[in-house]
Design a protein around this nucleic acid. Structure first.
Length: 388
DNA sequence: AAATCGGGGCC
DNA sequence: GGCCCAGATTT
């Protein structure tokens, strides 16, 4: 049952549908589908390679590719896939490495693996036929509720609604749906609204296809995130966002949640005017950038300083700085140290420090030539100013 | 640099 | 069953 709109409170599905009419203008609800269909036929996209087919395999393949990549990128991949794997059986029987090789460049490789797994399930357990219902489709790997609805409506004329990011944006604007669509309550309301909008039983399969395609086309070509082309929109006269000039506010963006704070200690190890930078691991925060050696606490940083050849007694604090990421705030505790004197009088030595591909002595004036995280650069810029 | 995105997986 | 993530792109 998880595919049906999750019931909120005690309302039945019918009651929730009825409640929509008190929330949104009935004439808009009633005219939405015919207007969208008319617009799609006149101004929508009609020549995409996966249109004008009812082959569920082709539609599925396009939908999976389009989940993550824009149309212009998908087109050549789609063509190559179909040439190499004309049927779901051909895909299922291919070595997985062949599939991955053809996918290479599209990214999101777990979805390629799901694509392959899905093909094997369809070929092996469904006789090569994709399930015809949203429920059946959504049990397959890589197919969720929205993708299932896209396949069911395009391939089988099912009167089911999609609800992807584009559609959420269109609905939020046209109907003035408040709240962040990533929030369950808001999303559930959008599913109910979207379901109420699908063409009625009188609609032909072609109408259903035009409707679903229209939802996609409107969001992708007119009702875009940045600069919607309201002048060409068939709903401009009714659209809540347009008529109240809130295109930028709808849909509501993710609420800024209080982010956790992490704390890190950074070593500013100086040798004259040069500072030691370390290359960070390729993935994770500041992946691949050059930064200061780090440690999780004061003692660990002192140990690192000593390991590099600094006199621990010379390690002293600089002003802390904060940097905010999407997910968390980083408090940086910088500690500055100089290399200890070598036994040979009057010489400090870079030779003490292992020079490998992941460490570098960089004169402060040259750090711009390295990829250095913004807060670290700021810190070093300040240091440079004070040393001169 | 920040925001966004469907589905999967984790709890 | 709900929440958050992984992995990538667009703006």
């Amino acid at each position: 049952m998880y595919l049906s709109t999750p019931s909120s409170d005690t309302l039945t599905s019918a009651a929730r549908q009825a409640a929509l009419k008190t929330t949104y203008p009935a004439p808009l609800l009633a005219s939405f589908a015919p207007r969208l269909i008319a617009w799609q036929r006149e101004h929508g996209r009609h020549d995409l390679p996966w249109q004008n087919t009812r082959d569920a395999y082709r539609i599925w393949l396009s939908e999976i590719m389009l989940q993550q990549t824009q149309v212009s990128t998908v087109i050549p991949y789609y063509a190559r896939f179909l040439e190499r794997f004309p049927t779901v059986e051909a895909l299922a029987n291919a070595p997985v490495d062949d599939v991955m090789a053809l996918w290479a460049g599209l990214g999101y490789y777990t979805r390629a693996r799901n694509l392959y797994r899905c093909a094997q399930v369809v070929a092996g357990q469904h006789g090569g036929q994709f399930p015809r219902t949203v429920e059946g489709l959504a049990e397959l790997p890589g197919i969720g509720r929205s993708t299932a609805a896209a396949i069911a409506s395009f391939a089988f004329g099912a009167r089911e609604t999609i609800l992807d990011g584009n559609v959420k944006r269109v609905l939020a604007r046209v109907f003035g749906v408040e709240g962040f669509p990533g929030e369950k309550r808001v999303e559930n309301g959008m599913w109910t609204l979207a379901e109420s909008l699908v063409p009625d039983a009188a609609a032909t399969d072609a109408d259903v296809s035009a409707y679903t395609q229209g939802l996609m086309d409107l969001g992708a070509t007119l009702c875009t995130r940045g600069k919607p082309d309201c002048e060409r929109c068939p709903f401009a006269s009714d659209c809540v966002a347009k008529t109240t000039n809130r295109q930028r506010q709808l849909p509501a963006s993710r609420p800024k949640k209080a982010v956790p704070t992490r704390r890190t200690w950074m070593l500013v190890l100086m040798d004259g005017d040069a500072v030691m930078l370390e290359k960070r691991p390729p993935s994770g925060i500041w992946g691949g950038l050059w930064s200061l050696p780090e440690a999780a606490d004061e003692a660990a940083l002192a140990a690192r300083a000593e390991g590099f050849g600094a006199d621990v007694a010379s390690v002293s604090p600089l002003a802390p700085l904060a940097h905010t990421f999407t997910h968390f705030k980083l408090d940086i505790e910088p500690r500055i140290a100089e290399l200890a004197e070598l036994a040979e009088p009057g010489r400090k030595g870079r030779a003490l420090v292992a020079q490998d591909a992941d460490t570098a002595w960089v004169p402060l004036r040259e750090i711009d030539a390295y990829g250095v995280p913004a807060p670290v650069r700021k810190l070093l810029d300040g240091l440079r100013g004070s040393l001169i």
